[in-house]
Amino acid sequence: MRFLRSYAKSLLLWELLLGMRLTLRHFFSPKVTIRYPEEKTPKSPRYRGMLVLRRYPSGEERCIACKLCEAVCPALAITIDSEMREDGTRRTTRYDIDAFKCIYCGFCEEACPVDAIVASRFTEFHFEERGQQIMTKDVMLAMGDKLEPQIAADRAIENQYR
């Protein structure tokens, strides 16, 4: 009996039909894939992409060289040199993040007392030469300037939960 049933099933391609049914169901269901790069997936305000440095609206850099991000970084990706700027404030002379070492954990952002280093939504970067992965202070400040509207909007949402 059991033998007959399995024989009939295989003769009639029953399992294939079961598979085709699934295919057909997905054929008419809504799609989850998108056409990158024309289309992009939505990102959370908490998304942790490329790290950038921010400025105050006055144009003054936020970073005060407290080195807490450097201390908390589990991948040792951050290197900071600091000194007293001419106006007597504490500033960095070097702020490097090795993008190859960075694991995008966001600890630096959490440690930062002045919201200077933040994880942006930006993920689309590439390097063409060895050494370019060291993101210098100038590079990160420039990226921060470019992304500031989005970053500020994200921080405003985040601040509700702080």
Binding site: A65, K67, E70, A71, S82, E83, M84, R90, R91
Partner: peptide, 9 residues
């Protein structure tokens, strides 16, 4: 030494 280094590093 002002602002040049941190005790922990």
């Amino acid at each position: 030494f002002r602002f040049r280094g941190r005790a922990w590093e």
